[in-house]
Design a binder for these strands. Structure first.
Length: 258
DNA sequence: ATGGTGGGGAACCCA
């Protein structure tokens, strides 16, 4: 089974690239973030045409998440239950996995803007609610895969120039602690299960030739619950789409489970 | 040096 995540930064603009990518990378599930389109503007037909089901939580202008899957999911949940949030950042589904099932979650964690911003406080509060909900999800579903844009680079090795990033969002200690708290629920950053090239990143700023200089950060992750870890045989960042014309600023991350 | 690029949507907000 292959699971992937991709922050597409507008599904409207990136739809042809997503279709191309799926044709070349026929994953079982693709989690999308930053759809940036209203619920009724989702291009469902384009995905059904290529054999994918879709569940999504859209909103006008910002945010929005989806899960494309070869098999229709069940127990769809949108948003974090009990957490008042006008921003569409979470969707969950249950998919078949061998003789059992796997809970797959697509998450677009808040960016936070800057450490002195209200959005940073929102981010930390959001993470607390996300953690509490994930704890419940892990209780109810032994096999859980949480994919998405976490907007946190967990360690300095996930940052092109850690010294330049001191004091910025994505790397601050409270954010990293919030991410570690997810890990402490019994989740594993599947990318670090394997030997990886140094300077492996999933996001590069559009500005200042970020991608050409490999001035990126690794903020898109595939987290796996304990029982899934021995089943994970690979986790890779596919840099190819970032080199497309009109690319998203993020690139896909793909985990393989057996 | 507080820029720069890109998406949304129609002046700025967000990343």
């Amino acid at each position: 089974m292959k699971l992937a995540t991709w922050n597409v930064n507008s599904l409207k603009v990136r739809l042809p690239q997503v279709l191309d990518w799926l044709a070349a990378n026929p994953v079982d599930a693709l989690c999308l973030q930053e759809l940036k389109l209203d619920q009724d503007k989702f291009p469902l037909q384009a995905f059904t045409d290529i054999g994918y089901h879709a569940d999504w939580a859209g909103q006008k202008t910002y945010n929005g998440v989806a899960i494309l899957s070869k098999v229709a999911g069940t127990e769809i949940v949108k948003n974090i239950p009990g957490f008042e949030d006008h921003q569409q950042r979470v969707i969950a589904t249950t998919l078949p996995y061998g003789e059992s099932t796997i809970r797959v979650i697509s998450a677009y964690c808040p960016n936070g803007q800057s450490l002195d911003s209200d959005k940073y406080q929102y981010k930390l509060g959001w993470y607390a609610a996300f953690k509490a909900w994930l704890a419940e999800e892990i209780k109810q579903h032994e096999r859980v895969a949480v994919l998405g844009d976490y907007n946190v680079a967990p360690a300095d090795e996930d940052v092109h120039d850690p010294a330049k990033w001191v004091g910025q969002v994505l790397v601050s200690e409270p954010e990293r602690e919030a991410f570690r708290e997810l890990i402490n629920l019994g989740l594993t950053d599947s990318f670090r299960l394997f030997e990886q090239a140094p300077k492996s990143f999933s996001w590069w700023d559009y500005r200042m030739n970020g991608f050409k200089r490999n001035a990126g950060v690794r903020i898109d992750h595939v987290l796996l619950s304990k029982v899934l870890v021995p089943h994970c045989t690979a986790c890779i960042i596919d840099k190819a789409p970032r080199a497309n014309e009109q690319p998203s600023d993020h690139t896909p991350v793909v985990a393989t489970l057996v």
